[in-house]
Design a protein around this nucleic acid. Structure first.
Length: 579
DNA sequence: TAAGTCTAA
DNA sequence: CGATTTAGACTTA
């Protein structure tokens, strides 16, 4: 079992649990095979959009399908100034700079929702004496904003959510885990993080106190490998693996405190332990920061186009060409569909138009995970290693006049099969446990993006250039009258209604860092979970050729019938695809 | 650019 | 027995 909902968890199930085990605990457990990610994607997009709408800065970063970081520094600071110190209980949170009436009322004398450390005694009667210190005020504001977002998410979108509120991504994410589901938690001051940190301030700082309670592998940014190396060093021996349980379970539990307080521990030592070939530069300093609750990474703004799109499937064994062919066709079809869903946009400005590509991937990649051979004892060492080959993506995949199936088939025959042969000799014996195909190297198509938010002229120029570059060779040969729009077809509905959704989301606001008392970022960390949706659109197409076979012979365009030298066809096709 | 590693949900 | 899928950031050659 990959994952389970909160109801199942309440009854004792875990992620990655054996189905047999889970069934013992919950006989009426419902097992759902496979996945319909499309509906999750759609829900994810919708929820993301809703939340990002509250971020004045536009800083709203998705983490997976169901989590979002929101940097609410500006809105929080704005409201900090609006507070009336003489009547904090009746405060108003303004959500729109341009509309003083947009917002909600709240009590600025206390934090909304749960707090860390937990208060054993609920605060007496609020004593709106004076304005608390700046950080506390900001966290109070952040907590109420989070509360408002969670209520909005629930009442307007139908999803419950979980949120963590603190001053950076690391802390907000971690503190969001403290109370769930359907809750929010704010990491309370004091946040004393000394300039150099490293000294033991656990007495004064809730940051240290909080983070020290975590096993190192639980810290975001410290993954399996990194955690392992740190454990080995601290324990000065190879760790032991837990048996029978999920991955990465260790019988040796090494806590953050144990590492932080290890003799001569610091950025330099960590750099030695973790550095080396292939390691990220500055890894020591980065991890040292994490162990001290320091995380200066910015909440990223949403990207309009993904940097890659990939599809994969795993198998118990795929070991012959006909299986490979079948799987490649399936994957290629899904990939083309995904490209249409994610890279095709309604063409507004043309009358009677259809869709147009907002970006063109330039590269296609095929990766596999070969099953390791049997060991002497008959066992098989697990390996997750992948190998891959990549090459130019033929232009014909952008042709909207061909059917998806035809496009996929062509992609398989022309690209994927040859790449596969570069990976695995048709003679040699192989057995694959996974096949993945994907497209990368997106080149954004120029758009009349009247979009708000700052526009980057330089960037737009570059985009133009990129596009023009692609055209240059072929530009001339394209007959003027070959321009044509491609009409779009209504998408075949393939939605499955109703999904189950559990939704949870959790935003967390401000992020003042102790290290930088005044200028911290605020980070809101949102969490959403579960969701459902409908499916995507469709397409169709005509036909075409591609750029690799540039010969001197003439060819006829399947779309407009124009005749031109072979080398010009790719540009010509691109031309159609852009229209 | 290509291939691989690490991380995370 | 068996153990997902997708994607981003980053390094190295």
């Amino acid at each position: 079992m990959v994952t389970c909902n909160y109801e199942a968890r309440r009854r004792g199930c875990h992620k990655l649990e054996l189905i047999s085990e889970a069934k013992k605990k919950v006989p009426d457990l419902i097992i759902v095979l496979g996945e319909e990610l499309g509906r999750f994607r759609d829900a994810s997009k919708l929820l993301y959009k809703y939340l990002a709408g509250f971020a004045w800065s536009g800083k709203a970063e998705k983490l997976g399908f169901d989590e979002v970081f929101l940097d609410m520094t500006d809105i929080v600071e704005y409201n900090q100034r609006l507070l009336n110190p003489n009547d904090l209980v009746h405060s108003f949170f303004c959500l729109d700079r341009d509309d003083p009436t947009a917002g909600f009322s709240f009590d600025a004398t206390s934090i909304a929702g749960h707090v860390y450390p937990a208060e054993d005694i609920p605060p007496p009667v609020p004593v709106p004496e004076a304005l608390p210190d700046a950080l506390t005020t900001r966290l109070i504001l952040g907590s109420h904003l989070a509360q408002h977002l969670r209520l909005g998410l629930e009442h307007e979108m139908g999803y419950t959510s979980t949120v963590g509120i603190s001053t950076n991504k690391l802390l907000s994410k971690l503190v969001g885990n403290v109370n769930k589901p359907k809750a929010q938690t704010t990491l309370c001051p004091p946040y004393v993080v000394p300039e150099d940190y490293g000294d033991d301030h656990s007495e004064e700082s809730n940051v240290t106190k909080f983070i020290d309670g975590h096993e190192i592998g639980k810290i975001p940014g410290i993954g399996f490998k990194t955690a392992q190396r740190i454990r080995n060093h601290v324990l000065s021996r190879p760790h032991e693996f837990g048996v029978g349980q999920g991955w990465g379970e260790t019988t040796d539990i090494v806590g953050v405190r144990q590492v932080r307080c290890f003799p001569s521990m610091g950025a330099e030592l960590l750099e030695k332990v973790l550095g080396g070939p292939g390691a990220e530069r500055g890894i020591g300093g980065k991890v040292w920061g994490l162990l001290n609750g320091v995380d200066d990474t910015e909440v990223q703004r949403a990207k309009k186009i993904p940097t890659q799109i990939s599809i994969e499937d795993s198998y118990s064994s795929v070991d012959n060409m006909s299986q490979v062919l079948r799987e490649l066709r399936m994957l290629a079809t899904s990939l083309i569909n995904r490209m249409h869903a994610d890279l095709l946009e309604d063409d507004e400005d043309e009358s009677g138009s259809g869709k147009r590509w907002i970006a063109h991937p330039k590269t296609v990649r095929l990766s596999t995970r070969p099953r390791p051979p049997l060991n002497d004892d008959g066992s098989r060492t697990r390996s997750f290693n992948r190998i891959s080959r990549s090459g130019p993506l033929p232009n014909h995949v952008f042709n909207l006049n061909s059917s998806i199936d035809a496009t996929a088939e062509k992609l398989v025959q022309e690209c994927l099969v040859p790449m596969f042969k570069r990976l695995h000799s048709p003679q040699g014996a192989w057995s694959l446990s996974l096949i993945n195909i994907g497209v990368t190297n997106m080149v954004e198509t120029a758009s009349d993006d009247a979009g708000a938010g700052g526009r980057d002229i330089g960037k737009m120029f570059r985009r133009q250039e990129d596009v023009l570059k692609e055209w240059k060779v072929e530009d001339k040969p394209v007959p003027p009258d070959s321009l044509r729009t491609i009409e779009d077809k209504p998408a075949p509905p393939d939605p499955t209604p109703g999904g189950v959704s559990v939704g949870v989301s959790n935003p967390e606001p401000p992020g003042t860092h102790a290290a930088e008392p005044s200028a911290g970022h605020e980070v809101a960390d949102y969490y959403m979970e579960g969701s459902e949706d409908t499916l995507q659109g469709t397409q169709e197409t005509v036909d075409e050729h591609e750029w690799e076979d540039e010969g001197e012979s003439h060819e006829t365009c399947g779309v407009c019938g124009a005749v031109m030298p072979g080398f010009a066809m790719s540009a010509h096709e691109r031309f159609h695809s852009l229209e």
